[in-house]
Design a protein around this nucleic acid. Structure first.
Length: 577
DNA sequence: CTAGGGTTAG
């Protein structure tokens, strides 16, 4: 079989897998597919030793596992992991670092310490980035307390890190057991039963990456002074490996920019320059965003001039995307277009974010036709792939103008192209419907939203059902608002019940005001015909139920509950709050 | 230059 000679060397195919594993869009899936296509061909060769050069090694597995982790696919991860012995590939520190990343992706904070313990018990020595991954994972969970304890323990030269983490974790037992059986084999929780946890085999000094990871935690949670204090502490460190570098400074600048302290942010930049720590494009882009958000476009332009002319850093696509968004913030859609064209003229390729941001400029300024033209350009540009956000922006453009029919036909096209509307799409439609004053459309929309809220059942997955959605406050409040105004009280009650199921408290004050202003004199006409009164009965019942929910005086206060027809009790079901 | 600190769109 000559064919077997055509099997690529593991170094070659795993390099591709590695590159794909972290790339956006379908990269991780392609990575896994590539792995299986090679492995399948190797398995077909009767004497596998002949194609040993193609066997996946530990590095190849790490790349595939990274793809699984990026997808958050625990089942696939365990499946690939279990195939390692077949090829004599032994998990190394990097493999377990990817496991840590997987735990972070799928919300299993409780398993982080188990990974560390398993590494130690299997004799795999953690590397410094293992510890950084752990810090990053805790930071990602918003658990800065544990992240701090971890860093502090490292600083103190402690080797009982597992003990430290177990103690920190003992507070929260609410582990998500759903993946337990899948994870069970990979990371046995039994390791943390009674016995004293293993000790680190050596000491680890925190480096500036670890400190910066913790700083990022402070930054993300808006703790500006802690971020700045961390920088100061790093500067006082004796060992140069923990001194702040350009990323540390940039993180501080990011924290200050987020807090709107542009003056202070500029001072940190000046400090970087003074100390000879090179600011880079990231640093400038962050500052740029700050000026745009402060609506200081002039300052933004000045900064770019300084960056280009003095420092010699050229703007990139992110710079331009930020500037385009900055124009939108000051209602300058023409300026947004100018920057877009300037960018292209300079040979900087627009990304899907560039196109979508430019669409936003036209959508928000009431020019859906122009937004649509940008969308068409995007479709023609082979370098970018139209995604959900772009479709949503197109829908938003029409909804912003109350052009419901156009918006609906875009949603149809969107479906034909394989994208299901999401909460954001529905939010735009709801706003458009409110603007167009077409409450009948709101009923249709609510029916669809209601369908998508239902948890899907495994059995009837014969058809590719759209994924379930978790409606947000904006969407439900808008729908309820429309229904209350249109006196669709039955539907309004359904929607507010849905809000409460999703932990959103409906704005009763607002709905009461709308009810009193618009409907308090409803059903008071004495001149209606008998037939008309009959037709109105159901609506009146709904109205009373809604008043009951609002806490307004209603006929239930004056009437015996038992007077309701027994079979009709359910009518009020959604009102029983 | 793969897991591994800092930027942009709904």
């Amino acid at each position: 079989m000559l064919r077997s000679n055509y099997l690529p060397h593991v170094k070659a195919w795993s390099a591709v897998v590695s590159r794909l594993s972290g790339s956006p869009d379908n990269g991780p899936n392609d990575a896994i597919r590539l792995y299986y296509s090679v492995v399948k061909r190797v398995r077909r060769v009767s004497d596998r030793a002949l194609v040993a050069h193609s066997w996946p090694d530990t590095a190849a597995f790490n790349a595939v596992l990274n793809a699984c982790a990026n997808l958050g696919d625990v089942k696939m991860f365990c499946q690939v992991f279990d195939e390692m012995p077949e090829w004599n590939a032994v998990p190394d520190a990097l493999t377990y670092n990817v496991v840590i990343k997987l735990c972070a992706r799928v919300d299993r904070k409780d398993l982080l310490v188990c990974v560390l313990e398993m590494m130690l018990s299997k004799g795999v020595e953690p590397c410094i980035t293992t510890l950084q991954s752990l810090v990053a994972a805790y930071v990602g969970f918003g658990d800065l307390g544990t992240a701090e304890k971890l860093v502090q323990a490292l600083r103190e030269g402690r080797r009982d890190l597992c003990r430290v983490l177990r103690d920190a974790n003992s507070a929260n037992h609410d582990a998500n057991e759903e993946d337990g059986d899948v994870f069970g084999k990979l990371i046995p929780k039994s390791v943390i039963d009674n016995s004293e946890p293993p000790l680190l085999s050596r000491l680890y000094r925190p480096n500036s990456r670890i400190y910066t990871t913790l700083m990022k935690g402070y930054m993300k949670s808006g703790r500006v002074s802690d971020t700045v204090r961390m920088l100061e502490a790093m500067r006082r460190q004796e060992d140069s490996a923990s001194h702040p570098d350009h990323v540390s400074y940039t993180t501080v600048i990011s924290a200050l920019v987020k807090a709107g302290s542009m003056e202070n942010a500029r001072q940190v930049l000046a400090e970087m320059i003074r100390l000879g720590v090179p600011a880079n494009l990231f640093t400038y882009n962050i500052l740029l965003k700050g000026y745009c958000h402060q609506l200081q476009i002039d300052k933004a332009k000045e900064l770019i001039r300084e960056m280009t002319d003095v420092v010699g850093i050229l703007p990139d696509v992110v710079t331009y995307n930020t500037l385009i968004d900055g124009c939108i913030l000051v209602d300058d859609s023409a300026g947004a277009l100018e920057y877009f064209n300037e960018m292209r003229a300079r040979g900087i390729a627009p990304t899907k974010i560039s196109y979508t941001t430019l669409m936003k400029a036209f959508a928000l300024s009431g020019q859906p036709k122009l937004a649509s033209k940008v969308f068409d350009e995007m479709l023609k540009d082979s370098r970018v792939k139209v995604d959900q956000v772009a479709w949503n922006m197109l829908v938003e453009g029409y909804c912003k103008m109350g052009l419901i029919e156009e918006a609906k036909s875009v949603v149809e096209r969107m479906r034909e192209n394989g994208f299901h509307p999401n909460v954001s799409t529905y939010g735009s439609l709801a706003n458009g419907i409110a603007l167009a004053r077409k409450p009948g459309e709101a009923l249709l929309l609510w029916n669809e939203v209601k369908e998508r809220c239902e948890p899907r059942k495994e059995e009837d997955s014969s058809l590719p059902l759209p994924p379930p959605i978790k409606p947000d406050e904006g969407l439900l409040d808008t729908l309820a608002d429309i229904c209350v105004r249109a006196a669709f009280f039955r539907k309004a009650l359904e929607i507010v019940a849905c809000m409460e199921e999703n932990g959103i408290s409906p704005n009763k004050t607002k709905f009461t005001r709308i009810y009193v202003e618009m409907h308090s004199r409803m059903f008071t006409s004495k001149h209606a015909s008998k037939a008309r009164q009959d037709r109105r009965r159901e609506r009146k019942r709904a109205s009373e139920a809604f008043k009951f929910w609002l806490g307004l005086p209603n006929e239930y206060y004056a009437t015996e509950w038992s007077l309701n027809p027994p079979g009709k009790q359910d009518d009020y079901g959604s009102a029983s709050i």
